[in-house]
Simulated assay, not measured.
Amino acid sequence: MVSVRVFGGPTALFEYGGLRFLTDPTFDPPGDYARDGRRGLTKTAPPSGTVTQVDVVLLSHDEHPDNLDNSGRALLTTVPLTLTTPTGAQRLGNKAKGLADWESVELKGGITVTGVPAIHGPGRRADVEPITGQVVGFVLTGDGLPTVYVSGDNASLDAVREIVDRFGPVDTAILFAGAPRIPVLFDGEPLVLDSAQAAEAAKILGASRSVVIHCDSWAHFTEGRDNVVAAFTAAGLIDRLDIG
């Protein structure tokens, strides 16, 4: 079983094939993030700890502070490799590599990381991406290793179905949830999975274990851990849930 340590928000650390992977690093203290001269997003809680060694950052996207904050950006300069979106890699520089959908990179130890679809809002990618930006999820595989899926900021169950069609059941799914909403975007519809959708994603994936993150520490997240537990209980999957 892959051991996952959750730090709050979208940030989790896990070891896989001898390498240490960190998802969307957010280590700032609570505070406000301005956008266009106005208050944008508000972080409400500090991280639950710090990290001292990371081999690879799996960054779903770099454009929003609730996925990459100031401390997270500083951390990237110390990490040998950041895997992210193609446009994000251009912005972040030579330690970052972009992965398009279904594009893979081989790492030491026989680990393969594949970029997989993610849509940061309701509806079609062509309608969503110009507003919320390009996002990528990840699937990790290797000989003798369990399959791990990291969703990133994805709101599409159709994307999840595409992923399971290619990779089959996964062992561990690290699912971003929290139903974040911005009233002026998409009529206030969730920008990432809500709790019921996270449970449905776990069912679609056939996940032996689901670690649900991205459901605390930010004011625009409208569902928290209690909602996740209730949804997985209703779906008959509570024995496969790890809330971190």
Rank of each mutant, 00 (worst) to 15 (best):
C215P: 06
V211C: 07
V211D: 03
I213L: 04
E200P: 09
P190M: 13
Q197A: 10
S217H: 13
L205H: 08
A199V: 07
S210I: 04
G206N: 01
C215H: 15
A207N: 06
A207V: 12
A219M: 07
V212Y: 06
A199T: 08
P190H: 12
G206F: 04
S217A: 15
P190L: 07
R209D: 01
C215M: 12
A202R: 07
L193G: 02
A207Q: 08
L191A: 05
S210Q: 03
A201V: 02
I204N: 00
H214P: 09
V211T: 14
A201S: 09
V192I: 11
S208R: 14
V212M: 13
A219N: 05
G206I: 00
V192T: 06
H214Y: 11
A201W: 10
V192P: 05
D216W: 01
H214C: 11
A199Y: 05
V211Y: 08
A199H: 02
A196M: 08
R209P: 08
H214A: 15
I204S: 13
S210A: 12
S208A: 08
W218M: 06
A207I: 07
S208K: 15
V212P: 09
R209F: 01
W218C: 04
W218Y: 07
C215Y: 07
I204A: 10
D216A: 12
I213T: 09
S210D: 14
W218P: 13
S217E: 04
S210M: 11
V212A: 14
S208C: 02
L191N: 00
S217I: 12
D216L: 08
E200I: 01
C215E: 14
D216F: 08
D194R: 08
D216E: 13
S195I: 04
S210H: 07
G206S: 11
L205Y: 08
K203I: 03
S195Q: 06
A201R: 01
